[in-house]
């Protein structure tokens, strides 16, 4: 009985005047919101374009001019730092001027550096008459010496045949020495790319913060303001992930990934518009790009 009385309880409705004035205000606010969304999207696109431009400029930086030195005898000398440059563009970037350039690993371990010195110590160096531009995909090494100079070596054909582009001198390591040389770098590479428990712990904590934020926002029905702590953590994590991906996979791969993300996000946004007939929230989609970065990063480890 009470059920039916409540169901048929008389209710007041909004009068026409109120409805009209509220509709007017809503329409105005809706237009303002659309304008703001378009502005945000345009600014983001411009910034994204600018970032890509800066990126592309740093990776196509012109090579350091090679000044041939009239040296007939070459000694590696005392090495203080050795780099392994595994990028295809390393031969153009061997001067390492770009802070964005990360397709490299290095070691300052005295024991390893000493081994490198010994491996090259008694090698025979001969003039190289070939065309180095043919070997764009070769592996490159850079040795910083105690006297402040740098020695850049390009390994062509991956069989222990090294050329110094500065002096245009060549040498060939014996097979055993070459295997030893590769073995050391393999160890350095593995050591550099290991994933220690503290990193796993940090990632877990950051991901938990995200999960907490997601649950919290779900409870309120709509995704609303996240706390600045969560936003900052998210931003920090995203940059960390991009940096690590850049370091591990190389700029080429990173740009490919960004392209894939952009394609994926564009497709999602267009589907969103087509199916839901709604203007998408660009800020939300940009956040999703960052989240996709994070998910991909976690998958890669």
């Amino acid at each position: 009985m009470l059920d039916s009385k409540l169901r048929s309880l008389e209710r007041k409705t909004l009068d026409e005047e109120t409805k009209n004035s509220q509709l007017l205000k809503l329409n105005k606010r809706n237009k303002d919101y659309m304008k703001k969304q378009k502005f945000t999207y345009s600014v983001t696109l411009v910034l994204f374009g600018l970032l890509l431009f800066v990126f592309s400029q740093t990776i196509t930086e012109s090579p350091k001019s090679i000044q041939s030195q009239q040296l007939t005898n070459f000694e590696l000398g005392e090495v203080t730092k050795a780099y392994y440059l595994y990028s295809k563009r390393a031969d153009r970037m061997y001067n390492l001027t770009s802070p964005f350039y990360t397709d490299k690993i290095f070691t300052t371990d005295p024991a390893v550096l000493n081994e490198f010195e010994l491996l090259f110590k008694n090698s025979e160096w001969l003039p190289f008459n070939g065309d180095l531009t043919k070997y764009t995909t070769s592996i490159n090494y850079l040795f910083q010496l105690e006297n402040g100079e740098s020695v850049y070596l390009k390994e062509i054909n991956e069989d222990g045949f090294f050329v110094n582009p500065n002096t245009m001198m060549q040498t060939k390591l014996a097979q055993q020495s070459h295997e030893q040389f590769v073995f050391y770098w393999m160890h350095i590479y593995m050591g550099k790319n290991e994933f220690p428990p503290w990193k796993i712990g940090l990632l877990t904590i950051l991901l938990l913060i995200f999960v907490y934020a997601a649950i919290k926002s779900n409870k309120r029905g709509t995704i609303e303001k996240n706390s600045s702590l969560i936003n900052l953590s998210g931003l920090g994590l995203a940059f960390f992930c991009i940096h690590k991906m850049n370091e591990w996979l190389g700029v080429n791969h990173l740009l490919t990934l960004l392209l894939i993300f952009t394609f994926f996000m564009s497709a999602t946004v267009y589907l969103h518009i087509l199916i839901k007939k709604q203007e998408p929230n660009w800020k939300y989609h940009i956040q999703r790009i960052f989240m996709a970065n994070i998910v991909l990063f976690v998958l890669f480890i």
Partner: peptide, 27 residues
């Protein structure tokens, strides 16, 4: 009346976040 208007104003801002998990009325 005021809160009704505010509800729809808020809905404008969060409309793209409406994920269709419930009806619009519920949301």
């Amino acid at each position: 009346k005021d809160l009704t208007q505010e509800t729809f104003l808020k809905a404008i801002n969060s409309n793209p976040q409406f994920r269709g998990e419930s009806s619009e009325k519920t949301w």
